[in-house]
Amino acid sequence: MMLNVDNVSVRYGAVMALSGVSIEVSGGGCLHSIIGPNGAGKSTLMDAIVGKRKPTSGRILYRGEDITRKSEIWRRHNGMSRSFQRTSIFPGLTVREQLELVAHKLGDKRVDDVVEVMDLGDVLDVPAGQTAYGVQRRVDVALGLIGNPTLLLLDEPGAGLSAEETAGLFDHLRMLVRERRMQAVVVEHDVDAVFRLSDVISVLDLGKHVATGTPKEIRANPAVIAAYLGSEQ
């Protein structure tokens, strides 16, 4: 078991963003998606897993070790990385400069790999702030891919992209997961892409865990349909 979210609750003031959520993420080449209506707590769950927010209660277990208290810096050095819902890159640095900067820190000098995978060969020497939004999203994901992380957490990687670009991104991800045996946990709204490409899906609603299973199981799950899919087309 690579990641174990153990009964995690997160409170913001008077609001309970997550209540007692437990999810298991197995290792070795699996695309695990997290879906749910707005306000379900998906981003909060990501924040808790990656170390941006400390859970009010509960634990995060990574490879069997309790990492709830560990900083996000530690997590990045130990195989866990994330990309951001609102693109978070370095606009003033060229694409090459920022990839190399992170590569240097993580002890992995090769960026060509990541450049090829995320198709950034054409824009390497352009300041990232001057590239198209779709390129910036890919840079955001690329920053997370450096150093061969074993657990990749992606928060709405398709946000702001066209359906075509999102599909392309997910294909990249699927390839990485299959070929590199990476583990990816993805929060995403594009339900088509999610159901087409995920191996496992977890559903959240109003801060609670509703169900986890294969796409087929989730589609047929009455609780999920009631909470979420019932309002869809």
């Binding site: 900083s71 996000e72 810096i73 990045r76 978070s88 003033g92 993580l106 920053l143 450096i146």
Partner: peptide
Amino acid sequence: SMVGRTLRAIKENEERMRFCGFG
């Protein structure tokens, strides 16, 4: 130096730097 590059990157986006493993 690396220190300078790190500092300027932190100036641009401190949060992302932490998520990339930089103190």
